[in-house]
Design a protein around this nucleic acid. Sequence first.
DNA 1: CGTTTGATTGACACGAGTCAACACCAGTGG
DNA 2: CCACTGGTGTTGACTCGTGTCAATCAAACG
Lengths: 249, 249
Amino acid sequence: MKESQGGQTSNPLIRKLRYGAELSDADEQHLHEMLGQVRDFDAHTDVTSEGDRPEYVHVVLEGFACRYKIVPDGGRQIMAYLVPGDFCDLHVALLGEMDHSIGTLTKCRIAQISRRSVDEVTAGWPAITRAFWWASLVDEGVLREWLVSMGRRPADKQLAHLICELAYRLDAAGMLEGRSFAFPFTQHDLGDTLGISEVHANRMLQQLRRDNLIELPGGGRRITIQHRERLEEFADFHPAYLHLKKRMK
Amino acid sequence: MKESQGGQTSNPLIRKLRYGAELSDADEQHLHEMLGQVRDFDAHTDVTSEGDRPEYVHVVLEGFACRYKIVPDGGRQIMAYLVPGDFCDLHVALLGEMDHSIGTLTKCRIAQISRRSVDEVTAGWPAITRAFWWASLVDEGVLREWLVSMGRRPADKQLAHLICELAYRLDAAGMLEGRSFAFPFTQHDLGDTLGISEVHANRMLQQLRRDNLIELPGGGRRITIQHRERLEEFADFHPAYLHLKKRMK
DNA sequence: CGTTTGATTGACACGAGTCAACACCAGTGG
DNA sequence: CCACTGGTGTTGACTCGTGTCAATCAAACG
């Protein structure tokens, strides 16, 4: 399969892992074989739920999903956006039990990997293990930055920061087109992400538009960054925490 | 060294890793050898700083440290408390560059491990690699819960949740004495942790004391939980995310 | 003892939540 | 073809949690 000969790949997981790990052709070939089963999910459905001990771990191939938790008063907190190439729940292979849920935000195509293959990887494929570990460490870095945003940035800057982050991550996934990219999140989703109300998310979006930092052409399923540098400056955004140096401009 | 024969150990890292991994005597022996160099740090000093590419990764042996970031307006966000047995910066071995800083909150005794030994572990010690990866995944789980607290819990419940978490983690480290444990954080530290002001941290602590959920005997360097169940109920605390099942009551 | 660091309190301002009404679609079915 | 529907976005009025700014107090310390 020439996809695995170190050249172009249409597989978003391998594309992503190349940013952080040195994988031999044999490693990439093994990854291809692990990703056999693919399932399609509708928008707004759960892939795995808190408390599950799933037999498979999942990788997003197309679409957008998220990690989230529900609190007793019914509030939802989104803790990560999962874009093509991201693992949904690799940690269950080591931790055993899901401590949160994974849900789709749009229609998704998702690959499954059995826990047994992950165990085999940790036992006998050190470079892939290192690559998987690298991927969880990047996720953790993103989570830390979200915590900083939530704790110490006002809502407008927090939203701007999220938009900058998505631009870089989607660029790495080959999904940035010029200065615009898919932005299929409802304002309700955004509120649950930023820890604010849907109404306030609306106002913050309007403010960024009024300040000519972003545009939401059409119905708002896409976003265009009008002045990248001004937006990053405003958001105090520094992409180092994404650890995408190898191919990032 | 009989410490590594699968019995009692005074080494907090090994004690912790036993919760999540199966380590052979040879693995534990190797861990002991890696932890050779020990350094003492004063309170309120940096162990590593954002942007560093340190030659060593660090493990807390005694004392309390934290991860933090500073934002442009001078605010500080604490993103994790590091207690004995916790890695400070294992991720630099894979990610290369620190994307945040590590500082002590009290005097600390900290062990150093060279990056080269970590590379040797990932290349040839699969059980230890898995244990280290497990430890980062637990850290990530804690971080997710902090994000939920920050986004969706009012400040009083958020503080209560933090106190519950510390009780469990310090119990796992053998540092819980009855219903009380070391609590050497200033209200300024607590504010920077919860994403609130020092003044508000003070008021939330007072509220928990008024409600007879906690006690801060003496100067407040220790804390006593008066009604564990009521506190956990109030905080919506569920310890599953700490993944301490093996030895946790 | 002064000095310093941390804890406490009160008055006031502001960011963000809540509630409610309304507008704007895209589907759907009669 | 159009009326109905539900999901989403938008707006305004009011409330409330938290921040800010001081001043004061308490304990630790050289």
